[in-house]
Design a protein around this nucleic acid. Structure first.
Lengths: 349, 349
DNA sequence: ACCTTTAGCGAAAACGATTTCGGTAAACAC
DNA sequence: GTGTTTACCGAAATCGTTTTCGCTAAAGGT
């Protein structure tokens, strides 16, 4: 059925070892036999059996990417990261294996490590991140965190520059004339949340604007949490004229809430997103946002991980990838905002 | 480092073969030693080496999904299919390997087949589909097409019921009172295009409405092709009052074109999508569309493929998955459409 | 003419599991 | 007491590679 190295050996009357060496570019084989072997292998359609090769070499040329149940559904984000990662992997003769750890992530990851199924692991955000890293360290499995800065010593990551992005978009709002700018947190997202909030705060500080606690509200991962957060802000006696949403999806919810209250976008209230997903392009008005180069993040993550696979004693790789402010139509000057004229009753503007 | 079956053997003073048999549930091992082995394996954190097991069993417990360069970027669609597939695979102790065949799909797929890297293959739409199938047949590799009906004899597929969906959404427009309904084709998509167009035509026929050739326009895969198609329709001396877009992304483009011409949605013109992607939910107004159960399609595809892996002599598996009409705010009665009042000059309604 | 290097090749040992086949001892049949 | 079954176990073959090590013959050095 499938052609093995032995088939070539028999056909050519050359030993198996020489065949293998010819195919793998060893020096102790004459160029004459090498050419013969190469050509015959090609003709016979020979490709080395993956399992046998992996077993002998102790290497699989596969890297895994593990996603927790919740992130499986954050599809827009993944949908851009993963192609970037897969394409880059393939350029290095490596493939991507998808792991979804629904029931028991740690047990699953343990199996993957101990069965030596992959050479390295990409970690997406997960609530079990800490114990996953513990495990990977114990098992001496190379890994890298994608899309999220980690403060843990020795870990590698490729993440967007959330601080710079958040600062830039806040400055944009300030330049438009806003001085009451809401911020929608996402505490569950750890350093991502910390950094974006820090960028927001830094921009306010530099402009000598106060940080107003009432204008900072939480959002959760569940659906439509941006809708509720927006309503909370608009219920304030003195609501903001601009809102920096933690990310695009939340911003879309927020736009719905604002529109339902009869507010005009962006004249009455400016709303921004973050991440630059496709969603941000098809709202009306289109969202001003910060675009993460997700495709590039996927690429660089794989490159970095493969470097770690080559040499696991490398110092940790930690990169913040520059992001891009995308000014669109969801932000404007607050000068004609009805929220300013009659701020005590935003329900009937 | 990693614990092998031999380590257990030495520790317990039991032969390797007995260990293996205990682990794999063979009958000729006493329940006493079985328990002992199982417990010891657990304690030692033993997991069988994947490569060794694959080599011996001639099976990898991996299935591949191959996507062509172009589809890599159709992210919203993939983003729902793939999680469904990955989750289901994992429930069957199988994992998904992602292949992106950029430069040379056939060479890539050949390698995957001949190196026996996977047990089966999922095929997404690709322009090279035909030669891929030829190859898979030759190599006797189980495969299934996802998301697209195939007319080729002997092939298996899981696809949405495009005909029924298209018919339902056209009937919805007819019931609203439209009698000039545009249709945006996507000839590149083969049977998908054929079926959706057939559904459209069937609905017209049943309602005794004529099929008007001018109202049927092409769209291509490139960006914004829906924008141009919409303009073509609106430039007609007698434009349609409703447009059935081939899919949601095209519909979004079409909405932009209509809005730019000062038309009100849905009063002046009704626009529908197809597929029910996230995009369709966040436009203003939200798109009436046909929702494909993408997650379920992913699940069923994997289940079917695994069945074929078990027994490749099975008759082909061909399923059309029911779809769901989602009526939202982008469609309405044409009774107040300005396109009807002044149909010769839609530019200045 | 003798010793040393070099080029090219093949035998054989891994890699870590699964699975076949035969063997032993106890249980059973008669 | 002999023959047969049964329950349990282990030796060894096997999957298809890679890689080490030794061998032969030719080439080179003096």
């Amino acid at each position: 059925m499938t052609v093995t190295i032995e088939d070539i050996s028999k056909k050519l009357g050359i030993s198996i070892s020489t065949i293998s060496k010819a195919l793998n570019g060893y020096a102790d084989v004459s160029s004459q036999t090498r050419d013969l072997v190469l050509q015959t292998a090609q003709e016979m359609g020979y490709h080395p059996n993956t399992a046998a090769r992996n077993l002998r070499r102790g290497r699989t040329d596969k890297i895994g990417i593990i996603m927790s149940e919740s992130i499986v559904y954050i599809s827009e984000y993944l949908a851009e990261i993963i192609p970037g990662a897969a394409l880059t992997a393939e350029q290095h003769d490596t493939n991507l294996i998808l792991y979804t750890s629904v029931d028991n992530p740690i047990a699953n990851l343990t199996r993957v490590c101990r069965s030596r199924e992959v050479d390295g692991m990409i970690l997406l955000w997960s609530s079990e991140m800490r114990s996953m890293i513990d495990l990977l360290e114990r098992e001496n499995m190379p890994y890298i965190i994608i899309g999220r800065r980690s403060e843990r010593e020795g870990t590698s990551y490729i993440a967007p520059d959330n601080f710079a992005g958040a600062k830039a978009i806040t400055q944009h709002l300030i330049q438009l004339g806003h001085d009451r700018i809401g911020f929608m947190l996402r505490p569950a997202l750890g350093t991502t949340n910390v950094d974006r909030f820090a960028g927001y705060r830094a921009a306010l500080e530099e402009a000598d604007l106060p940080l107003i606690n009432d204008l900072v509200v939480d959002t959760a991962i569940e659906q439509r949490s941006g809708y509720h957060a927006m309503n909370t802000l608009l219920d304030l006696p003195h609501p903001p004229t601009a809102v920096f949403s933690f990310h695009d999806v939340v911003a879309v919810d927020a736009m719905v809430a604002a529109t339902e209250r009869g507010l005009r976008l962006p004249d009455d209230i400016s709303i921004t997103g973050f991440d630059g997903l496709r969603s941000s392009l098809i709202t009306t008005p289109r969202l001003t946002t910060v675009r993460q180069p997700l495709h590039e993040i996927g690429q660089r993550t794989v490159s970095a991980l493969l470097a770690l696979v080559e040499d696991n004693s490398l110092p940790p790789i930690r990169e913040l990838v520059p992001v891009q402010l995308e000014i669109r139509e969801s932000t404007a000057s607050p000068q004609h905002s009805r929220l300013l004229l009659n701020s005590s009753d935003p329900h009937t503007p």
